[in-house]
Simulated assay, not measured.
Amino acid sequence: MTRPMTRPALLPALRDADLRLGERLLAAVAAFGVAAVPAALLLVLVEANWPPLHRLDAGAAGRLHTLVREHPGALDVLRVLSDVVWDPLTMRLLAAAAVGVLLWRRAWRLALWAAATVTASGLIGWGVKAAVARARPALPDPVAHAPGFSFPSGHAMTAATCCAVLLLVSLPVLGPRGRRAAWAAALVSVLGVGFTRVALGVHWVSDVLGGWLLGTALVAATAWAFRGWRRDTGRDVPAPLAEGLEPELAGPAPERD
């Protein structure tokens, strides 16, 4: 009869799995371009000034800008939502708070995954903006201004990344109603931030689509890396969109040493 491995005997295997987790996270960030193929195709269409996409960008920007200018109250709401509620700094602070909770609960590897994913999102978004160097919309009598280049939308990419990260780490501790509420809040935030950026005239629709695609692709790639670590250590690999990445979080927090 085979005796179960003791904790000291498990440590080398866990260390090896942890090293592979780090390697997988780096590989996922480097190779997420495969998952970002739709964003790359969108960029090709943007650079080629594809007429249907150009009409969509120009038409949405013009109509929404005119509508917002005619409703000052709505403009104030959009500014608060874009610059405070869904600002990238706000989103990153929420993600940082989640990382802090994960560290307190000793979910070290999940905290590493969340921090690495959000950090990579900011760096990749900045790098793509600098490489593409697309100008922002130049509308008559603009209602808002934003610095830097336009593609992809940093607000949209950050919202997609951070909302997905927050969902995947919080689903295990939520009941059915809480999960539905979390999904609703995430979808409203991601869609809403895209709408506000176009309505304020600081991004094209294609900028927002590019941000959503890149953010989603990055989370998918790094989540794959984390699921591989669970598989290496003999843990169950849950359905992440239903149960999150680490179902064990549903249990009580471990006692402190």
Rank of each mutant, 00 (worst) to 15 (best):
5 M>S: 10
5 M>Q: 14
9 A>M: 12
10 L>S: 06
15 R>H: 11
16 D>P: 08
19 L>D: 03
20 R>L: 10
22 G>A: 10
23 E>N: 05
25 L>P: 08
26 L>R: 05
28 A>S: 08
29 V>M: 03
32 F>E: 03
36 A>I: 11
37 V>R: 14
39 A>V: 11
43 L>Q: 12
45 L>I: 06
49 N>T: 13
52 P>C: 15
59 G>V: 07
60 A>K: 03
63 R>K: 04
70 E>M: 01
71 H>L: 12
80 V>A: 14
80 V>M: 13
93 L>T: 09
96 A>S: 02
97 A>F: 13
99 V>N: 11
105 R>D: 14
105 R>E: 10
108 W>V: 01
109 R>C: 03
116 A>W: 02
117 T>N: 00
119 T>C: 06
120 A>L: 09
121 S>D: 13
121 S>C: 10
123 L>G: 08
125 G>A: 07
126 W>C: 04
128 V>S: 05
130 A>Y: 07
134 R>P: 05
141 D>S: 12
153 S>R: 05
155 H>C: 04
162 C>K: 04
164 A>K: 00
171 L>C: 09
171 L>Y: 15
175 G>N: 13
182 A>H: 09
191 L>R: 00
192 G>H: 09
193 V>S: 13
201 G>N: 11
202 V>Q: 09
206 S>C: 02
206 S>I: 01
215 G>E: 05
218 L>E: 03
221 A>R: 01
223 A>T: 01
232 D>W: 09
237 V>M: 08
239 A>S: 02
255 E>D: 15
